[in-house]
Structure formats: structure tokens, C-alpha cells
Design a protein around this nucleic acid. Sequence first.
RNA 1: GGGAGCUUAGCUCAGUUGGUUUAGAGCAUCUGCCUUACAAGCAGAGGGUCACAGGUUCGAUUCCUGUAGCUCCCACCA
Length: 870
Amino acid sequence: MELSKNFEHQAAEQKWYSHWLAQGYFNSQPDNRPAYTIVIPPPNVTGVLHMGHCLNNTIQDVLIRRAAMQGFNTCWVPGTDHASIATEAKVVQMLREQGIAKHSLSREDFLKHAWVWKEKYGGIILEQLKKMGCRLDWNRTSFTMDDHYYKSVIGVFVDLYQKGHIYRGKRMINWDVKAKTALSDEEVIRKETQQKLYYLRYAIEGTDKHIIIATVRPETIMGDSAICVNPNDERYQQLIGQKALVPLINRAIPIIADDYVTMDFGTGALKVTPAHDTNDYQLGQKHNLEIIDILNEDGTLNEAAQILVGEERFAARKKIVQLLEEGHYLEKKEDYTSEVGYSERTDAVVEPRLSLQWWVSMKQLSEPALEAVMGGEIAFIPEKFKNLYRHWMENVKDWCISRQLWWGHRIPAWYDDRGNYVVAANEAEAQQAYQAKYKPESAVVLTQDEDCLDTWFSSWLWPFEVFKGYSNPGNADVQYYYPTATLVTAPEIIFFWVARMIVAGKEYMHQIPFKQVYFTGIVRDKQARKMSKSLGNSPDLLELIDKHGADAVRFGIMISSPAGNDLLFDESSLEQGRNFGNKLWNALKLIKMWEAKVSPDATDDSAFALQWMQSRLYEVKAEVEILMQQFRLSEALKTIYSLVWDDFCSWYLEWVKPGFDQPIASKVYEQTIGFFTELLQLLHPYMPFITEEIYHLLQPRTTDLCQLQLVPGEQPDAAILAQGQLLKEAITGLRDARNKNQLKPKEAIVLHIQSAEQDLYSTIGSVLAKQVNAQSIAYTDDAVAGTISVVIGKDKFYIESERPIDTAAQKAELEKELVHLQGFLVSVEKKLGNERFVQNAKPEVIALERKKQSDAQEKIELIEATLKGL
RNA sequence: GGGAGCUUAGCUCAGUUGGUUUAGAGCAUCUGCCUUACAAGCAGAGGGUCACAGGUUCGAUUCCUGUAGCUCCCACCA
């Protein structure tokens, strides 16, 4: 078969992925092998694959494929998250585009649209993962609103309520005016925002005096309940206890004192608006102030504001500034930058709002979860995230879990018309509970809470509920696969998700959900900006796969992603991956060319090359194993890359390559195929498609590479490795000398070697000769006149050619080397001359230094002698 | 305001308990090669006082302290 010039990824990727699926390789059932389980961080159903997913899922696939090769029964569970708020926003938008307003629909009709949307778009991201080659067990695809999953979420809510961990309460929450829902603290993104600080003049009632306050939110003055100053502030002593008049509406409010107020910020006087600021609310509670809510849930001003009613808050701000200016209430305004909270999902400025919501009391639940990480039961990689985790868990706040949305798990609370309520898994149980609790005299109609639960209140059950661990406790799957092995996720969601999964795992499975958490970095663009949809700086992953191939994309992302560190994404690393694939492809082509020239009785001088390659392979296998255990996936890939490109292609293949029209010994041919196969296997977790393709092209096979078990390496032969090193140095040195003396590659030379280790050179001499284009090698005890002298290590080489020799250039070269060596020798001798070094340093270090010294001395003598001879 | 981290070749980054022939890789650069696996390649080369200043040590890119610059997380300064 004629092989194409380069690897053609598109056909191969499709072919192999469908083959693997057809063979059922990715599907796992419990058996007597040890399990290695990963649950995918479920992407949002709204999602499309971006660079973050690419990084995250490639890492998981590498881990899974490697574990499979090591004999584990691997199970990687795919699935999606219903993403309550994100999805609802999408559906609302879609309906709006069709001219349908959400509030014109009933809850049931809206949810029908949402499900249609989910069925249509919700699986896109999973299909994209197939393009990347992910070894996911598609039979186990889960969704956070699957029947059993939904019931478990409700069950957990009821259970936590009954245990007293869930309560309903009126608190300040973060209100998203766009989505018209509460948000948890974690869903609020703080951003530095350019603002104006307005200095407003409030008249003191019954006097001609006034007090000036500073605010960035003049539109909320109608909600003011007080003005507050620091009790120690001398400027305002006599005003405390008096009343000020709110500009424009002339409502009288008290002037109070509290040391919460900073004297040197603004004017030292603060307007207190309990309904619209968290701190003001607390201040209001303390001083028993009136709460005047002037905003509607969509962020427009309501009747209580008296003026500008119906205006949107930011429009109102502009208008009220104008009114204040006209009324001479505006003292001055200045530029001011501060952090403002934005909704993670809708990017709307978050409005602090007093509201009745459901909460999880976290303190007690968190304790076992904190211990699991701090005590080392769960390992964090890298470890630095332990501190972050501890800090958050020790200061954990109650979790607001209700959302004023329809898409999600509906809160299982039922109310009568007087505000009494019960919590139960369904309406029938709710009725029972209601009867028991309130003992009504006649039948009462109960209505279910309209709100649904925070998305994370379902995702925190993910590691066990994908195995029905809650809905069907103790089933065979959950017993076999849980706890899972490794969680791979971004540090951004350590609080949202990781911490809460540990809490839920401990509470419901009485076991940790995973043994290790590998935190990936954040993918950034070349200007170090986070890749995001809104910035539009995230390349289209499918286009990249199409252009460079999935293997190249996987290579590119893995070569530059140490655990926990951000990575700057650059398409050039993909090109490196593509080139690497091409290199493998060409090695295949070369070996295939030998197929026709294999001869059992060909003479062969490749014994050394074979031994050397074997030892390098053993050596790298051990290195890679250690690196993988330490999760240094990027370095493991680099190690394999260099083994393939440098050792195998550049050195080994060149050493055993038969000359034109020469046969190749069958032993060498078979060994070469064996080596190549092992290299493919090492590389397969990173680049599954091309390795599988080449594996099959190399030889007819009855097995597939992805199912092949890794054979542990043996002890490498240190002597052979050292000899290989020497040989490589000699070849490089001689090639360099040829280059510098303008000897064309085609011009053959005669090589004279002056070495104490003639035996060694006679074993590797034929390889050496071929690599430096020497027609013959002679051994000598003395300098050979009229040649180019080259000193490599402790050996001297003389290149005899027909070219005239440029002695001056050689001399300069050698002198440069001499200076370097002398400098080196001085530093070594300084060390050895230091008594305290000799006394304190470890014996092996001293021995090494002595060896360095004698080596350097020998080399210096050698170079000096050579220089003399010139 | 508190906490964490980063600063190594032109660029992006490795460097694993302080000593490994006086710091490695990829990309970029320079020189020579269309050598029948690969020009997406081959053979070579150049390039770094390891942010700065102190300290510990026989010895520091590596440990400690301080300084500067950058990044991230947390926190109620309107």
C-alpha cells in the first residue's frame, strides 16, 4: 500500500473513534479488576466546547487511557448539567426572538420549550468531546435532571430540612435584575468599575445648616432612613440626634452615630439605605431604622420612591443627578473607582435586596469535608489549593439555594394561603405532613413553592448519583466505582462545586467522592487574557481540530499545561503537535520501505544500536511512570516526545538504516517494529488516533493499541547508555568540525582516532563512520599531521580530507574551549582547596568534584598538546 | 485591607528534598544542506551575571528576609 505524504487525520479520526465505540471498549461493567473512575465535570447544556474544556477533558482522557493500559477497569462518566440560570436565560432569549414573553407562558408550557431546547442543543458539547477522542462510557451518560437524579435532589433537600440544615429566611441577597432571581455569593463577580462619587447636600431640619454626604448611588436617596457619622467625629457632634431632609422629597431622617463609619472617607457622613445595601441593612437592624424598598424586581423605581417612578435604576441615576443639580443639592462630583458586583450569568449589576429565600446552613456540614482535605484523605494537586480550601471552609457562609427560576429542581415546599408551609418530597406527603403539623379542620389547598434550586444543589451529588448512589443505595455500580479516583477541574469552581461535593459525599455516602483533585490552569490568550466568549478571544476548537487534527490539538494543549498553572494558548504549539504527528508518520514510511528488503542472513552491525535503544526505552518508561504518578503530564509528554524524535528517529533509525540497495537483517527489522510499537503505546494516551493508525499500518494486527497492556520495563544497561552518550557526542563534534571546515556532507573523510578506549570504538566504529561519512577509520597513538584535530571528551580525532585546512580557525576554536575549561578548573579547584568543603560535603560530592578536576586537567593537556601540534 | 502565587534565553515555559562537567526545551534567529522517511525536514551554531538587595551555608537558580513589578483569591469603606 502506498502511504500518503503526510498523516491524514480526518479519515483516521472518524474511523478509529467509531471502531472503538463499535468494539465497546469504552463501556465498563464491574468485574474483579481494580476500578479507575472519573466523573466528568458536567458541562452546561448551553455550552459549546472551548479551550477550557479541551484542556480539562484531554487531561482526563490521558489519565483514563493510561489507567486502561495499566489494567484498571476504567470508567469515565459523561454527562451534562441543566445549568438552571444559564439555560433559562437562553430559552427566554429564544422565546423573545419568537415574540413570546416568558411571563405570558404557564410554568408547564415554559418547561416544555426548555426541554425541547435541551434535547436540541444540550448534546452538542458531548458530540464535540467525541471529536477529541475522549474515552467516555457513553452508556452512562447522565443529566442532572434525569428522573432518578431529580428525585435524589428533592430527597436530599427534604432530608437536610428534616435534619435542620435547611431553613427559610429573610436576608440580604444578591439580586439579578435581568434574570429576576437571587444569586449565591459565588455567582457574583466583582469588577473594578469607573464610577462617580456624588457629594449631596442634605438640609438640617429647622435650621439653615446642611450636611454633605458622598454616594455613588444618588438614585437611592429616596430609600434613605438615616445619615450616619462616626461618634468621634468632631465636625458632626452637634448634629447627632437632629434630623436631615432628603433632597427632592424632603423626608426627615435622623442623624445617627456609629463607629462603622470611616471619618476620612468622603465627608465622613454616610447616607443609610437599609433596603439597598448590605452594610446599611446591618446598620439599620442595629439602629432600628425603617426599611424603604424603592426598587422593583426588574430594577426600576417603584411607588415608594415618589419620584422617577418606573425609571430603570441607571437611567434614574442620570435624571436624579440633573434634578439635584437644578435644586442646588449637588455640591460636587468626582471620579471614583470601586468594585461592583456583576451577575456571573447575565452580567447585570447585582442589586442587594432583602428577600425571603431558602438557605443551607453550612457550618456543621462542612466539618468532615474540611477534615477530609486537611487530613490528606483527599489530595489536592497542586497542594497550594489546600490553603484556599481551608480558608473558605473555615469561614463558610450559609448557602442561598433558592432561585426565582422555573428550569431546575422545584423546591419541595408547600404553602397554605396563610403562609404556613411544610417540606415533603411530593404533594401527597406534603398533605400528610401538613395535616400532622397544623391539624386543619377542613381540607386545605396547598401550593408548591414557585422557585427552583441553585444548579450546584444538584451538581454536588454528581460523583455518586451518576451511579444512583442516593436513589438506589448500595447498588453494585456505586459500590464498585465510588469513591472515584481523580477529579479534574478548574480552581475557579473549588467553592461552587469541589467543596460541596466533598460535603455531600461525606453526608450521604459517608465516604469522600474522589481521592485526588487535579486542578488545571486557566487557558489564556497571548495577551494573558482569560479566554471567554464575551471577549471573543477563544478560537473555535472544532476548526482547530479540523485544521490540525485532534491529536495535534491534544498535544498542543498538553505540552504546555503543568498542573495548576495558567497556560497561554498559542497556535504554534498545535503546529508542533502536527509536526510531531508527521514525524511519526514518516518514521512509519521509512520502516515500511524496509519491509521489502528484510533478509534473514543479512550481515548486520546494529547490535550496539539495538541494545542502546532498548535501554533508552526502559529508562524512559520508568521516568514516565514516575512523572505520571506525580501528575506531571506535560513533562511526561515532553519526555516521550524527545524519546521518539531525538533518540528513535534522529539517532536509532539513522544508525540501523540500511544503505541504498542494502538488505536489512530480519532481527533488526523486527526489533525496530517492536520499539516503535512500544513508543506508540507510551504516546497513545496523548495522541490516540495517529498512534492507533500507525500501530495497524506497521504490521497486520489482531489487537487494538488502545487495549494493549503496558509491559513494565527492565533495568536499563548503564554502560550501554554511557557509550551511546559518548558516541552521540563524538558524532556531533565531528559533524561540527566538518561544518566549520566547509566539508560538504558528500565529501568522505578518513578518520583517525586516538583514544585509550580502542575496544569501545571498534564496537561502535561502524555507526560512527556512517554518521560522519568516513570511508575508513584508523587508530593511532599520536597526532596525525595535515589533519583537522578535534578533541571530544578525552579522545582525539583527526579528520583527513582533501581540503586545505584552515589552521587559524581551528586554533581559535581550541583556544576558546581551553579558556572555558581553565575557568571551569579554577572553580573546581577553588572548591576542593576549601578545607570546609572537604570536611562538610558528602563523600560522593567530593569524589565527583575530584573527577571533574582530573577530567578537566586531562582535557586541558590534550588541547594544549593539540595546539602545539598545529 | 488580608492571603496565595509569579519574576530563568527575543517569546512561552521546565528545572522534584542546595553540589550532576559552571542552567534545559519548544518557538524564533544565524550557518550549511532539495542526503531516495520527513523542507511541517536534516546537520550544526549563537543566545541567560536564573527580577533586585541582603542573609544562612564550605557551596544558593534552588532555603530565609526585605524591595520592586505582575497575577489571582478573599474582605462591608459609602
